[in-house]
Design a protein around this nucleic acid. Structure first.
Lengths: 232, 232
DNA sequence: TATTATTGTCTCAATATGTAACAATAGACC
DNA sequence: GGTCTATTGTTACATATTGAGACAATAATA
C-alpha cells in the first residue's frame, strides 16, 4: 500500500461524507478510527484529476460500504483557512509508517465538499481504508471527538437532514424495503430528536399518498399486527 | 493590469455569485459581459492561498458592488469534470490581449462553489473587472446565454432561494430599510413567479411578528396611504 | 373466553388558510 | 366643501390542516 500521490488527485480539494444509518432505535453515522492515534474522522477522499466531484464521492462511498445508487446529497463546502490541521494529518501519516516532509500535499490546506448519505445498515459491509484501523457505527448523540472541523460538519449535516425531512421523502431511505408505520415513526423521531404523535403521524404519512400497504406483519406479540408498507 | 498569477490562488477552485436584486417589479441578477467576445458570465473569482472561502466571496462581492455585510448564502458546489470549457476561457483571455499557452492555469478544470446574495439595488455601485466590458442587471426571466454551466447555477440559485423563502426571513433583503406591504408582496411574487393573495399575504406577514410599523407613506396618489414597515 | 398491548380509524376542538366583503382615506374633480 | 376612485387595513365566514383524545379491532396469552 503506497501513500497517495499528488498527481492522481486535485490538490487542496477533498470531500467528506456523513453516512447516516438507523439501528436499535438510534440514528448513527459511520466513523473511521485511524491507526495508533485513536483519532476519529468522517470517511472522505479526494477527487481524481479527471473525475467528476459527485462521481468521486460515489466511488468513496462504494469503497467504504460496498453500496451503489445510494441517496446522497451535497450540503455544504467547508473552506476556512485553518480548518485543516497539518500537524494532525502528519501524525496520522507517521503512525502509519510514512515519513512525510513538510511539503507533502496532504499537509496542505484543504477545502472540503461535504455530503450526507442515507443507507439501510443491513445492506452494508464495512471496509476500512489503508490509514484506518476500523470503521464503525456511532450514535449521533454520543460521538467520540473528531479531527479538524468534522464535528461541525456532522452538526450541519444533521441540521440539513432535519430541514429536508418533510420536503423530500427521505425518511424511508434508512429502512429496509418494507417497514411498519411504527418503524418509520421511530426514524422520524430519531432524526428530529423529539417524540411525535402516533395518530397525527399516521394520518399525515398516509395522506401524502406515497406509501403502498402490503400484508400484515405478525411479530408473535399478543396484540393487533401492523401492516407493512413500502414507498411507491 | 496583469493576468492573474497562479501562485496567488488555489488551483482548480473558483467561486461564482448569483447576486439578486429587485427593481421595476422584476427580480434581476448581476452579469458580466466579457470584452470583444460578447459572452456573459456570473461574477466570480478565486480563493487566495491563505484566504478563507467565505472571505474570498465577500471580497469578490465588495470588489464588484462596493457592498459589505451582505446577505450571502452558499448553496452548491459544481464539480463536473467537463463543466469548465478551456476553449471558452482561452478566447476570453485572448480577446483581452493575453497570449496564453495550453498549460496556463485558468484553462484547467475548475470546481466552483456557488453563492447567492440578496442586495438592495439602490445601494450598489457596479465595478467591472479587468476582463469584462461591463457589469449590469438582467431580469431573471430574460437572461442572455451564459458561459459554461452558469445558467444551471442560476437555476439552482433561484430554486434554493424559493426553497428558503418562507423559512428564512430573506424577502426584505432586496428592499430598502423601509418599505410598504405592497413592495414586499411584489418581491415575494417575483421570487416565486406567481401572484399572491393580498389579504392572506398581509395577515401572514403581520402574524409572524417580524415587522415593525412606521409612519404612513404618502405617494401623492388618490387613495389611502399605506404604512411603511421595517424588519425588527 | 377474558385479558393485554398495540393498531387503524374516527371524532371534536383548535389553528391556519382561502376568499370575499367592508369601512377608511388620500387625492382628483367639480 | 362634497363626490368619486383607487387602494389599504381589517373583519367575517367557509374550508383545510393539525392537535389530542376516544374507541373498536385483533394477535397472542392465560
Amino acid at each position: 500500500m503506497t501513500v497517495p500521490d499528488i498527481s492522481d488527485y486535485l490538490p487542496h480539494i477533498a470531500f467528506d461524507s456523513v453516512i447516516f444509518g438507523f439501528s436499535k432505535g438510534q440514528l448513527k453515522i459511520l466513523l473511521m478510527e485511524y491507526h495508533a492515534t485513536g483519532w476519529y474522522a468522517l470517511p472522505g477522499g479526494f477527487v481524481g484529476v479527471k473525475e467528476g466531484l459527485n462521481q468521486a464521492v460515489e466511488r468513496g462511498l462504494k469503497e467504504r460500504t460496498g453500496l451503489e445508487n445510494i441517496y446522497l446529497e451535497q450540503f455544504y463546502t467547508f473552506g476556512d483557512f485553518n480548518r485543516h490541521g497539518a500537524e494532525v494529518m502528519k501524525r496520522i501519516l507517521e503512525a502509519n509508517g510514512y515519513a512525510v516532509n513538510e511539503s507533502y500535499w496532504l499537509l496542505d490546506r484543504f477545502i472540503s465538499v461535504a455530503y450526507y448519505a442515507l443507507i439501510d445498515v443491513e445492506k452494508v459491509t464495512l471496509q476500512p481504508d489503508s490509514l484506518s484501523d476500523s470503521i464503525g457505527w456511532y450514535p449521533i448523540d454520543a460521538l467520540p471527538q473528531l479531527i479538524f472541523d468534522h464535528q461541525q460538519i456532522v452538526t450541519k449535516a444533521l441540521d440539513t437532514l432535519r430541514y429536508h425531512l418533510d420536503r423530500k421523502l427521505i425518511g424511508g431511505k434508512l429502512l429496509p424495503e418494507k417497514f411498519t408505520m411504527n418503524d418509520l415513526q421511530r426514524v422520524y423521531e430519531a432524526i428530529l430528536g423529539e417524540k411525535l404523535r402516533r395518530t397525527s403521524f399516521q394520518r399525515k404519512l398516509l395522506g401524502l399518498d406515497i406509501l403502498k400497504r402490503h400484508e400484515k406483519h405478525f411479530t408473535g406479540k399478543s396484540h393487533k399486527a401492523p401492516y407493512l408498507y413500502s414507498f411507491k
